[in-house]
Design a protein around this nucleic acid. Structure first.
Lengths: 214, 214
DNA sequence: CACGCATTAGACAGACCGGTCTAAATAATG
DNA sequence: CATTATTTAGACCGGTCTGTCTAATGCGTG
């Protein structure tokens, strides 16, 4: 939720007071995060957002300009939140293999949250305007996830880090989708971890490894 | 009141049985299949369905009763189509392992279709009313897919057919989701097949293989 | 205080939504 | 042919949607 830019045109020299309540932008983003994520960006209208945020409609359109840009800002904050969460889950390990498994463990923990409702980018882009801000936000998010897996696969010494990264991304996608579609069935965590280990073992086993490149 | 099992999306428009044109129900389902699948059940309204089908609005409500029931019928026809497609893909092999890989090959072929737009059940249930007809249709479809993978895993002699079935289902979900989100990137087929083989090898080639009869 | 500016509540616009209903036209059936 | 049932086009309903605009209200700063 730290996506708010403080680029204020009125560059006042007033010392920022940290106690006054959140700005309209912050409260709109908080309301959007709750309502859009829980019920979907199509079914939730502007009126419900401003009601939850306690903000006038004019402020919303003065701040974001359109609903689509509000959705894009909501997705950007989701992107930042997931980046922080997974980065913290990773940095507690040194072994790249353990880092990869830590991602799936962090996801399993996320799926257990009672308010979990699937991937926000997948949901928002389902009926989004092609080529619009929402699709772009989803593309950026997926590129980040894929780069993370590819980098870790390379650090783990995989002969084909791109291929292993894509396999892990497939598993990541499948786990998130199944966790939503199966209504929080906890039986997803174990097969996900088993599959991740099997894919890592198959790709990293060095006994009969074909070295790709010098 | 048999469900429209012969309403295949890609079938030709040849009137096989009778000379007169398709019934209102068939044309409505065909229009729903095109519009709902391509643009989403939320964004496509009733008026566009009846315009495409060339049917009066009264006939739609006389036939289906509500939009939700039309969506449910559209999903039922999708369910039947996928069942037929995957069943045909499977029955060309005898080895259960080859049957499983044939499913992923059939999916890869599906992803290459220019009008592919992801899993219809995943899309329709994204913002669906909880506990409604759409969610039920998605649950039934997922149960069928899972049973298929579990049965094949058991036939393949997996020591834990439920676990392997879930792993394969995760991969199935991930492949379908990635194929949509990555805008038809053909680079998904190879990692999917590699992962499927790795999961099968890990589950079926044990130090001491336990054959589950049959 | 006075000014400027952001924010407020809410009316309003124009479009679309799912769904109902009427009345004419058509098809099926005795 | 006459009767009945279905289908048709489209008006119509109440409601919701995004987005604009007005006018009053704060509220910090010179």
């Amino acid at each position: 939720m730290a996506a708010a830019s403080e680029a204020s045109p009125t560059a006042s020299t007033t010392p920022a007071q940290h106690e006054h309540r959140a700005s309209a932008r912050e409260r709109l983003l908080a309301a959007a995060n709750e309502l859009f994520y829980a019920e979907g960006v199509q079914t939730v209208g502007i009126d419900r957002i401003i009601e939850r945020a306690g903000v006038a409609k004019g402020s919303l359109y003065n701040t974001f300009g359109s609903k689509e840009e509000l959705v894009a800002a909501y997705l950007a904050s989701r992107h930042d939140g997931t980046s922080d969460r997974l980065t913290k889950a990773i940095e507690r390990f040194d072994d790249p293999r353990q880092k990869i498994l830590a991602i799936f463990d962090a996801q399993a923990q996320l799926f257990r949250q009672p308010d979990f409702n699937g991937c926000a980018f997948t949901a928002a882009s389902t009926e989004a305007r092609p080529g619009g801000l929402i699709e772009n936000a989803a593309d950026r998010f997926r590129a980040w996830i894929r780069a993370m897996f590819t980098d870790l696969a390379e650090q783990a010494g995989a002969p084909d880090p791109v291929g292993l990264g894509r396999q892990l991304h497939l598993l990541y996608d499948g786990a998130g989708l199944a966790a939503r579609m199966d209504h929080g069935d906890p039986g997803i965590a174990q097969p996900t971890r088993d599959a991740a280990e099997a894919l890592l073992d198959a790709a990293l086993t060095r006994s009969h490894q074909i070295l790709a490149g010098g």
